[in-house]
Amino acid sequence: MTTHLELELQDLTRKIMEMADVAIESVEESVESLKNIDVKLAERVIQKDSVLDKLEIHIDEECSRILVTKQPAAADLRLIIAILKSNTDLERIGDLATNIARETIRLEGKSLLKPLIDIPRMAELCVSMIKMAFRAILERDIDAAKSCISIDKQVDELNMQINRELFAFMMEKPTTMTQAFGLIMVAKALERIGDHATNIAERAVYFIEGQDIRHQE
């Protein structure tokens, strides 16, 4: 027999997955818009941010309601705590995608210093991290959570590499300064997205095993 609490938790999980899909779409589209300097797509990403904001508030309310009315314990309680905290991470991921989209708008009518390779690569890694973190929650898959956390290093390394490359551009040709600095901020945003995905994966581990693995290195 499925209890009311189980049904509520299934519904809550479905909502956070929906939110994760929107956030993933935003990250993908923001980088896509930058790659092609597609201002219309960038504006769509910015508009989508309000969807994430509303979902964040809604999921927060749902979590408080379930905590108060069903008083869950053990794995049920841990799932709600994991969702409640991942919710904030997703909202922040949405904000960071918006920052990237704004960079596209700033580049309107200009051409890129060079075709983007590492930034889309970073975005791909970030998207796969978010997907793994949520698969961990959905399927109680501890390996998915651990893989997600291990990918974060690659994202950080790509960020450093992009920084080095763009600093070289700026030194060689100071007129590229504005665009290069903007792209550094984009890489920084993606690096932060990777951190948020890591947070979600850590919460997945807490949900699955009850272990808090944050800040262990």
């Binding site: 209890t3 609490l5 869950p72 314990a73 053990a74 309680l77 841990r78 009850g210």
Partner: peptide, 17 residues
Amino acid sequence: IFTKPEKQMTENYITGK
């Protein structure tokens, strides 16, 4: 006990299963 019980049976009881 109420966040991370060791035994599955305890978990089943406190979560109302």
